[in-house]
């Protein structure tokens, strides 16, 4: 059965999932257009993994429905599995098989046949710079290599829709950058990607659209720029060397920016809304220098997605870090 061609690669509507007392998803709806990258952003326990498990047919929703590539994930589970690739939160490569054996096995389980599976495995090993390690047991791989192998495994049958559950969690910055580069290539090839992340920077860097979820609900959605606009404009800021001169600096900032400044004693900085752009930075620098105030840092700060989170939920993004994660409750 060929997939029905639709403009939407993923459609979730009103998804509800409970684990006993805990409501992991409380009516989550969103759509992902074909060929785009959607970032599902939220703190630990927000329901990201649960949403991915339902969309990838691993769990059943208590209410609501979902379609992947136009196919209902419940009614056409097997057809959906042919079209999706899933990289779960923990890299699920088989440590007792070699990297190459891992990929060949996935190919065979996708019914590609032995010969195609072998050829595809070698191609992916090359693409992910794992050729040298191909014959080693995967348990000897570094964290970054395991992630790359895991991602390669999800790509064996060239999925139309790729689900990546916190793809860079636990990676060092270098491995993370390498993984991001790989994802860029995939996006360039037109693969639809849904990725979950608790790193705001990552959603900003990779996603066309961001769906912010918290406590099982969608609390905001849009592109990164739009979300940032919801929070407000840029902030003009200056950090001074001597905290005693903060009030004086605040006065100068007020004059330059034309809006009320805020003082952060701990960071020895002052900031205020500044929509005039870079020119205001120059004027502020000049004014502070004229007053003889030594400046350590000075600039225009665009709001980060952390600010978005703070504005939307009234709590920092990591506030839910202690809450049990849906995936753990689900075992």
């Amino acid at each position: 059965m060929p997939p029905i061609q639709t403009a939407l690669a993923i459609e979730a509507s009103g998804l509800v999932k409970r684990y006993g007392e805990k409501v992991a998803l409380d009516g989550v709806s969103f759509e992902v257009p074909r060929g785009t990258v959607c970032g599902l952003l939220g703190p630990n326990g927000a329901g990201k993994t649960t949403a991915v498990r339902i969309l990838t047919t691993l769990a059943e929703a208590d209410a609501g429905s979902a379609r992947v590539a136009g196919l209902d994930v419940h009614a056409s589970a097997k057809a959906v599995r042919r079209l999706l690739g899933l990289a779960a939160q923990e890299a699920t490569v088989d440590g007792l098989l070699t990297g190459r054996e891992n990929l060949i096995m996935i190919g065979e389980l996708h019914h590609l046949g032995r010969r195609t599976s072998v050829a595809r495995a070698d191609e992916l090993l090359d693409q992910f710079a794992l050729t040298d390690a191909a014959g080693r047991l995967a348990k000897t791989y570094s964290g970054g290599m395991r992630r790359r192998l895991d991602l390669a495994a999800t790509l064996v049958a060239r999925p139309e829709v790729l689900f990546l559950d916190e793809p860079t969690t636990g990676l060092d910055p270098r491995a993370r950058n390498e993984l991001w580069a790989v994802l860029d290539t995939l996006v360039g090839e037109g693969t639809t990607i849904l990725l979950t992340t608790q790193y705001l920077e990552e959603a900003d860097r990779l996603a066309d659209d961001i769906v912010v979820i918290d406590h099982g609900r969608v609390i905001a959605r849009g592109d990164a720029a739009g979300l940032k606009r919801q929070v407000g404009g840029s902030q003009l800021f200056a950090t001074v060397a001597d905290a005693a001169r903060l009030p004086e600096a605040a006065g100068i900032l007020a004059r330059v920016s034309g809006s009320a400044p805020e003082i952060d004693e701990a960071a020895r900085s002052v900031h205020a809304g500044g929509d005039e752009g870079p020119r205001a930075v120059a004027r502020l620098g000049e004014a502070l220098a004229d007053a003889g105030i030594e400046v350590e840092d000075l600039g225009l700060r665009r709001p980060t997605l952390d600010d978005v989170f703070l504005t939307l939920t009234g709590a920092p993004a990591d506030a839910g870090a202690d809450a049990p994660q849906a995936a753990e409750v689900g075992g």
Binding site: T57, L58, A79, R81, R82, L84, L86, T92, I106, L109
Partner: peptide, 15 residues
């Protein structure tokens, strides 16, 4: 296999 996610990986395949 259950605790290390292998079962989930298999279940996401068209087996």
């Amino acid at each position: 296999d259950r605790s290390n996610g292998a079962i989930d990986r298999f279940r996401s395949l068209p087996l």
